[in-house]
Amino acid sequence: MKIDKDTLHKLAHLARLELREEDGPGMMKDLEEILTWVEQLNEIDTEGVEPITNMSFETNVFRSDEVKNQLPHDSALKNAPKKDEGFFRVPKFLD
């Protein structure tokens, strides 16, 4: 599996990561090697096999729609890197 520079930057953007210029080649090499290694799964015939999407044995776990176990407002804000009296603060994103 070849990963070019464009793909690498596209992936980093999708993952909201910012790769340093000097880390680019190393990351590209690691991704290529690992993806080439996982491609060995193509040796297995999976025709007609249903992909598994859930490992739990429970089905339809229902509970009544009651409000419980809430996090109080100040607890929810406690760990915020930036906040005011009632809200999380983030940089301006609308002009």
């Binding site: 793909t7 993952a15 990561l17 690691d30 991704l31």
Partner: peptide, 19 residues
């Protein structure tokens, strides 16, 4: 925040997973 906060292996796995 994510690039400065996460270590190398975590970022590698996030990149792979995104791929």
């Amino acid at each position: 925040s994510r690039s400065e906060g996460f270590g190398e292996e975590v970022q590698r796995r996030i990149m792979l997973g995104t791929f």
